[in-house]
Amino acid sequence: MLSSTGIRRFAGVLMAGAFTFLTTGVLGDSAVTPGSKAAGMEACVAPTAEMRRNHMDYLKHDRIKTVRKGIRDIRNSLADCVDCHAAKNGSGGYAQIDSEGQFCDKCHNYMAVDLACFQCHRKTPGEEKLSQSALDGGNVDHRLGLLRDKDAPAALAADELVQLQAIVQED
């Protein structure tokens, strides 16, 4: 029975490891997705624990300000969430923030809370950021289809990229 105990012990270690991994992934202090801008930053707009608990209220509070009153320089902007927390996907673009294993999904999936923001809001950092990263990566293709969602029909044409480049350099 020695071997079976060994297997059991091994399985136990594996389970514990998996559990530790999962808890650090979901509940640990570094919930930010590696490869996102947030990973290299000191803190979010509020301490992590507070953001975890209250981000939905903050977003709702500020969305009303933005939509109804036109106040855009709010602290809790969903676009900023995406800017910081979306991770690069390895091919020069960004992974969609609500896709499996990404920042929003990790927790929302774990907590089984529906995430409705991205039915309307963009899931990756804004258009100019994309072209910037494209320049960094040297991915100046004729059509930069790979930067967009693979299902998406639209893609940046080369001449649009040149325009964007100009704008980016102006900034």
């Binding site: 707009v45 855009r72 804004g126 100019e128």
Partner: peptide, 28 residues
């Protein structure tokens, strides 16, 4: 950021800087 940049990066960073302080206070 959109082509018509309504939230320049610098401004936002400044903003985050400012709000980190505020957030610190907010934990209290």
């Amino acid at each position: 950021m959109g082509k018509h940049n309504d939230q320049p990066d610098g401004k936002r960073r400044q903003f985050i800087g400012g709000t980190i302080l505020a957030a610190g206070a907010a934990t209290v």
